[in-house]
Design a protein around this nucleic acid. Structure first.
Lengths: 278, 278
DNA sequence: GGCCTTGTTGAATCTCCAA
DNA sequence: ATTGGAGATTCAACAAGGC
């Protein structure tokens, strides 16, 4: 197959099938791959309902991740967000046997829905982090959480040695994004931007190649562009695809009409530790 | 096989192989089964190192859980604590196909160990909750978290209707138990007692039958006895087994020598919400 | 501005009925 | 007896509006 280099696709958002696009890309070309796929729970995306049989879904999810692994650089990082069950199958059926390392993180939040009398209320998702070698790039300094005891003698020494804080934990608290827009401007299932930015900053520097698998309403794309990463993304839904192109073409003022959260550089670093201090 | 009824084993702690004991028990006899097994990461339990090949470990873990399912009442609840990877295999290879329902919870904590420059710091574990029917007993009132807006008129109405709060979320923050005892009296990997008590209270009432698979240092056993549950437990390590029997025979004063956290009835309910208020 | 109240929402769950 | 899908119901969290 004739492969298309990332350079040609730099900062493009395609309205094409994600797996077809992945297959058209050469090996080892992406610094980071970020996927927040449909979870196969029958959600209504602007009129279209998607739900496959479980096995079929897992096959699709595995095939997707397999292509991500191929396309990812040896020192790159991949992230897949899903419900814990779905991610369990992905790691057992594919990732553990094929990635160099697999780590499971937990995004936790508060929820007002899904309360059942027979179990605790679902309020977290899994994030699988996978790498292709022991040399994956990881930039702690871009995501540090403050030390809890900066006055401790040993911590003072670490600070003197240039350390800016500790590595964040494998769990992250971020509020759910509420779909408050009256005109349904937004994708109904958005990941909190600070969560995306945490992952993005942990794994990339400016000018790095980031594949945001599912464009959605484009918030992650806008965020990555604002942070000067080079992106590629897919969004099959024409309405959302159009919206993303609009957002990219817009100036900052217009972005407001999409209620884009203008995340400040420091927000992530400020927010997370407050929590860690529990 | 001649089965031994729970009545005969009431409040016994056996120094025998857990799977052999499970096999000796009749079907459908336990209200709750709680397992915090060895995670197969080469932990040193008083001089003996436990580590098997991965497949062998998963086979053992599956066999263990299979017997738990058999022994558990139709309206009972089972909980298995482990690292996310181990629990992924358990659910994919056994539980999803054999339990009525499987839920994944996340115990999160702060950690000063295991920091790696190539990933976020591991600071959570998975808890698989499995049931045998839609009628599993679950006692929300015994584990509620306070409402966030108790002044809301509608919430006030719910409180007037007898609701004491909301169902806790699928994630729980509890500090790690620090192994502070100089003489290594304690099992090195203890689950925080309030976490155990949350699970215990969610699933049982007084006089219910609780199988605490691995006795460890006996903290969970003491807690369950204090809360008037009937227990059965195994601990293969003779030193720990002896210690558990000592603790059970001890009066309250002597318990102090084991640095037992004397968890007050309300602690759980007070502690968790502070968190939920993030 | 805070404080109280009301409106809205849901990657949810429950119920029912058909196959 | 189980499964699966459509439609009804739930209920706490958050936003926004009013005072």
């Amino acid at each position: 197959m004739q492969k298309v280099s990332f350079t040609k696709l730099k900062n493009k958002v395609l309205c094409e099938d994600i797996i077809a696009v992945l297959k058209s890309l050469p090996d080892n070309s992406m610094d980071m791959i970020y996927g927040d796929p449909d979870y196969n729970v029958g959600i209504n995306y602007s009129g279209m309902k998607y739900k496959m049989a479980w096995d079929e879904y897992i096959d699709w999810y595995t095939e997707l991740t397999k292509e991500c692994m191929r396309v990812m650089k040896k020192d790159g990082n991949g992230f897949m967000i899903n419900y814990p069950k779905q991610n369990s199958y992905l790691r057992v059926k594919y990732l553990d046997d094929n990635a160099y390392a697999v780590h499971d993180y937990s995004w936790i939040y508060n929820s007002n829905v899904g309360h059942s009398p027979k179990r605790f209320t679902t309020a977290h998702r899994s994030i699988l982090h996978f790498t292709k070698s022991k040399d994956n790039n990881f930039y702690k300094d871009q995501v540090v959480a403050p030390y809890k005891n900066p006055e401790d003698r040993r911590i003072k020494q670490r600070i003197a040695d240039g350390h800016k804080g500790r590595m964040p934990y494998s769990w992250f608290y971020f509020d759910l994004v509420k779909n408050v827009s009256k005109d349904k401007t937004f994708h109904s299932c958005q990941i909190p931007l600070p969560l995306f930015e945490l992952l993005l900053k942990s794994s990339t520097k400016e000018k790095n190649n980031v594949f945001i698998l599912f464009g959605g309403s484009g918030s992650e794309i806008m965020s990555a562009l604002r942070l000067n990463r080079d992106i590629l993304s897919c969004e099959l839904n024409k309405k959302y695809h159009r919206m993303i192109l609009d957002r990219i073409d817009s100036n900052d003022e217009q972005l407001d009409k999409y209620r884009l959260v203008n995340t400040k550089e420091e927000e992530l670093i400020i927010k997370q530790p407050a929590l860690a201090g529990i």
